[in-house]
Design a binder for these strands. Structure first.
Lengths: 336, 336
DNA sequence: AATTAGCACTCTAAGCCCGAGAGTGCTAAT
DNA sequence: ATTAGCACTCTCGGGCTTAGAGTGCTAATT
């Protein structure tokens, strides 16, 4: 158990280190704190904090650097801070200025978040918990080459090219599309695959394509997330040696980032913080992640997340992630 | 004018430097070349090459490093090399294995190119020279909220949410969509904006949305290009100091990369090489770009491009860019 | 018992010197 | 025109030194 004073000191050390990226000396704490004690006393407390594992020292006589445990303490101590009213207003304002378009919202959220957190932000597209057919369309392009347009519930549109064995007139295609649209309306993938009804060979072919497109959508591993602010992260002093980030870069490019960092369990619309070694994947042992779900749990959920070095401005990042997740959820509820 | 021997030596210096990233000593050239001359002779030639500006030296008594002019010479000397047959076969094979889908092709092209060039590759989506309406669809989502699906020539699908002043039944929406689809078929943006015909207020509203969507498409500055291999570039010794690449990273994120590097004129389907200081933008004074257009000049064109340090394996990169641009053009011709 | 002044001690970072090695330029011989 | 030979230049790494930052400990103070 830490004394109140020890807690104050620890929080000061963490804040200052987050701010300055330099080991914190006892003297500075003595000056900045309103405790009115001498550096020597701070040093005694610091010795205890080190012994308890809250802080580390680069070497025998160096200043204090927070450990993962220290950051964890810090994060817990500011769990319930919410975003300042002025920032809330600013975010709402910006979101309502932009076009009514899911992709624009997500991309905007990523940009704002990266900007605020001065780190990399990732926002994934909401992934349907099991997508449902809404409508389809067939358009003849040339000879036997045809474009299938599939509209899913939630205003998601997918397209796919197919080739029929023989040319079909556009008028016949329209008839087929209308028939299937009516037949499959509101169904999910399995229901479409099993649906009993007389279908011509061409229609059967289309049914299979539709089924595959929907499966594709269901299985999609957070495809093409909206990502912004990598350069902010790179400006952090942690990255003066570039090798530190190469493996990370690769993850980002491979789009495997979210899959890798996504924790098993995630409370809805409440930011989860994963600090340093708490990450399962070794790649992120020097990184922290602030992540939250958003969306409508019965329909589709995505994630909002910030990735940066463990030395991250949690006090600002956590409420921002929380608030953006709330806004996106609200905006999405209009689409279902 | 360079003597044949000087040319041989210069090409050897460039190749070796591209390969090893280390200043090239006269002795190595003497050994590797089949000229049968001593290092001293090579040194004499090197002195001339330096005087003429083809090579640089880090300091008074250091080995040779190619200058931009040296690279330029090298590139000109291998202008007409084409890809080895086995690689051609490999590429064709891979492309015909993948689904018939433009986005998949482009993403595949970027990955292959990055892999081959061991540098960053960018492939932009083909940008219509002026997009043409093909078909539209209206789908009621909830109350007055409606999804507009617009299909353009070239199998490009765009969607957009709109809100009507009052709710309209899906059946009426279908009638409207069919009417407008017929009226606007094959037209470009201006023609749609000017088309004379009686339209209800709701239809007029849709016409405006369509016009805006098409304008959006026309003006789109190479949106969301397919990008791969950043991490390859970062592994180059040029980037052991990470600050070198931060501004670059920012450009990539802002999607402004292509806009910035795109040269004024670009021969169709023939790789253009821009070396170091030849780049107009100062950011790229240490980079080279190998870039080519692809597509159907009357319909839609995109670009294939590789970006890396001036020390780049041109001999491999140029034919690869050429070949991919050719393949993509061929594949695209099926869509128009 | 907690605090603190004082001081010795530790460790880092930067500067400096030095020598080894790589590679050239020049000169004089072929 | 070529080249052997050699002096010269420059870089790079190791080792040494010093200044400075910051601590831990001890003994005095409240």
């Amino acid at each position: 158990m830490l004394s109140t004073r020890a807690e104050t000191i620890l929080n000061l050390i963490v804040s200052r280190y987050i701010d300055q990226a330099v080991p914190v000396p006892s003297q500075d704490i003595a000056q900045e704190s309103a405790l009115g004690v001498s550096p020597a006393t701070i040093r005694n407390e610091m010795a205890r904090l080190e012994h308890e594992g809250y802080i580390l020292r680069a070497h025998h006589s160096a200043g204090s650097v927070p450990s993962d445990k220290g950051y964890r303490f810090h994060v817990e101590s500011l769990k319930d801070i919410s975003l300042s009213e002025s920032e809330q207003r600013f975010f709402s304002h910006v979101f309502h200025q932009v076009e009514r378009d899911l992709e624009k919202w997500l991309s905007l959220a990523a940009t704002l978040l990266a900007q605020q957190a001065q780190n990399m932000a990732v926002v994934t597209t909401p992934r349907p918990t099991g997508c449902r057919f809404k409508h389809m369309e067939l358009l003849s392009l040339q000879d036997t080459l045809t474009l299938v347009v599939l509209v899913l519930h939630g205003a998601k549109v997918k397209e796919q090219l197919i080739t029929f064995d023989e040319a079909i007139l556009q008028s016949s295609l329209t008839v087929i599309a209308n028939k299937l649209s009516a037949a499959f309306s509101g169904l999910n993938r399995e229901q479409i695959a099993e649906k009993e009804s007389y279908l011509s060979p061409a229609e059967e072919q289309i049914r299979e394509i539709l089924s595959r497109m929907m499966q594709d959508e269901d299985e999609q591993e957070y495809e093409a997330p909206y990502l912004d602010g990598f350069h902010f992260m790179l400006s952090q002093p942690e990255f003066t040696r570039s090798d530190r980030m190469r493996s990370l870069m690769e993850l980002v490019e491979k789009r495997r980032l979210i899959k890798t960092i996504l924790p098993k369990e995630l409370e809805s619309q409440k930011a989860t913080v994963i600090i340093g070694m708490e990450n399962e994947d070794e790649t992120f042992h020097n990184y922290s992640i602030v992540i939250s779900k958003y969306g409508i749990s019965t329909e589709a959920v995505g994630t909002v997340c910030v990735l940066g070095p463990t030395r991250m401005p949690y006090g600002h990042t956590i409420p921002t992630v929380n608030y953006l997740s709330k806004i996106l959820s609200e905006l999405m509820s209009g689409l279902y």
